[in-house]
Design a protein around this nucleic acid. Sequence first.
DNA 1: TGAATGATCACG
DNA 2: GTGATCATTCAT
Length: 206
Amino acid sequence: MENSLTSSSNKNWVRLKPLSRSFYERDTITVSRELLGKVLIVSGNGGSGASMTAGRIVETEAYHGDDLASHCSRGETPRCAIMFGNPGVAYVYFIYGNYEMLNFVTEKKGYPGAVLIRAVEPVFGETLMEKRRRRQPRKLWTSGPGRLCRAMGIRMLHNGHSLEGPALFVADDGQRPSRILSSPRVGINAAKERMWRFFDGDSEFV
DNA sequence: TGAATGATCACG
DNA sequence: GTGATCATTCAT
């Protein structure tokens, strides 16, 4: 017998299909909201063995071209060039000398947009997440953009990687948050009036 | 509350 | 080349 919510079988998550490019090729704010409740699935361990982790997205932030807080607010630079490119691609950057941040490129090619993934709830591969997050309590495994990248093995090598699978993708398993809330973005000084942080109001991981 | 830690970008 | 800044995290 398998319970779809509690089973630890890989197959439940592996069988999920990646959302297609068209999901991402839309308004960044729409994509930010619709990503809540979807499942992020990451496979591979930098060549050092098989691994898979999965987490339900519970917190996102929108960034786009007409936005003083965006990396692309002053036009195209080497780092943010990927935001001008194809949607449905990972934009990963390294910051504060320590942390990777995972984003998904949105909007039509030529207009820069991305969604920052700020928190997920672990749903698969928790043993591996715990190991990667060394002794931290469960709630600190994936609550925060740097933490979730650590827990799920997301590195700079994922920058530019397609989100149409199989190494890194998002899938819809039918679950949706019952309450979506919004607020100003975290750690941002510019454009504070924009309520472009979206989160699951019932999640303990935000 | 502040240190850690290194890539990025604007400037010249 | 230089220095200020940074979509953070963790320990004090």
